[in-house]
Structures are given as structure tokens and as C-alpha cells.
Amino acid sequence: MIIAKPKPIEEIIELVKDLKSVLVAGCDGCVTVCEAGGMKEAQVLASALRMYFRQQGKDARVDETSLTRQCDRPYIAQLDDQIEKYDAVVSLACGAGVQFLAERFSKKPIFPGVNTCFIGVTEQKGEWTERCQACGDCILATTGGICPIARCSKRMANGPCGGSSSGKCEISKETACGWHLIYERLKELGQLDRFERPNDPKNWATSRDGGPRKIIKEVSQV
């Protein structure tokens, strides 16, 4: 899932402070699951903004809603009727949702209410970690199911580097050394031979480096 975290409220206030009406739009997808941008967060933010405006002596309107997904048109179309009531929308969806809203409502400023961070997993309640960088060419089959691109600070294809210490990355004792994990896992799988085989330079063209990406599934199209 996509993991996001709420933007600092002061940043959002800076974006909307001169407006008279704002819609806070949550998304029921990933950002709900990572507790960053669902209905709850929309209500909390809207309440905070209303209080902000009120004490500024402004009679601004701040409403909240949450859409099933902001990355699909039929769902964002639900705002078609209401959008005119607002000067701007603060979207709590991931960057994709924010942009999709912006495309649809081209005359309205659409502001991001969260920082979209990574593709990751829930470690425990309130803790998420990164697992995937969406490079477009998955190599997990060769690395024991642990991705060195997402989990090595230097995306090394042939790690670990000399900075690995007690299974932790040189950048922080909080971060596991991805290559240490790969090694342990390959050992468990009895595939340590893979570890000594140098991996060739990666083709990054499938990644963001190849420009904005697009996928077409022919069979799904008419």
C-alpha cells in the first residue's frame, strides 16, 4: 500500500489562510489504512481549520468528506456538484489522488494535505516501513525476496557495503541493513551461491528514470 503522513497543519494553513471556503477531501483507500487521510483525519483537519479561521475572526466554511478512492474518476465525480461551493480542496489522498482531482477540477486549486512517502507495509499499529520502490522490473526472485533497491540505503545490487554493522545500516541504527537481511534469507533458502554472483548493472528504464510511466493491458481494452 501507499504510505503517507499528514502534512504539518501550519503548512496547510499557509495554503488556505486567505480562502473563504475549503473542502477537506479524504480518501478511503491506502491513506485511510495508514491513518493519514481517511474520514477521521479529514474531520480532525477540518475542525482544526475551522478553529483557525474562527480565531482569525473569519467566517470561513470548512467541510469534510471522504471519497472511496481519489484515483478513479467515478469516485471523484461525486464532487462535481459540490465543488463550486469551495475556493479550494485540500486532498488527503496520495499524490495521485491530488493530481487526479486537479485534472478534473481544473479551475480549483487542489492542495495536498499529506506527504506521500512510499510503498510499504504495516509493521504494527502506527508503524509502517518501506518495501518497494516501483522500479518496474522486479528482481526479488534473485535476492531472497528482499528488495535491495527499497531496503539498502544505497540501492546496492551487490551489498552489503562496509558500513553495515550488527545487521544495521550505516545511516542509522534503527534501519536494518537490507543486504544483511538478504544474506540471512539466502542462507535460510540454501541459495548462498546467488550471493557471490555479481549482479549486472540494472536497467533503470522501467523505473522513474524512463520518464512518466504508463501501463496498457491490451486485453482489457476495447
Partner: peptide, 18 residues
């Protein structure tokens, strides 16, 4: 001297192989 010690030689072998 880096950890894990057991893979240090393996990694050297890999670089030499490269």
C-alpha cells in the same frame, strides 16, 4: 571488520569475480 563477518570474504570473492 564489518558485519556480518562471515560474508566479508564472500563479498571480496564477488568483487574479485567482477
Amino acid at each position: 571488520f564489518a558485519d556480518p563477518f562471515e560474508i566479508r570474504v564472500a563479498r571480496l570473492a564477488k568483487k574479485i569475480a567482477a
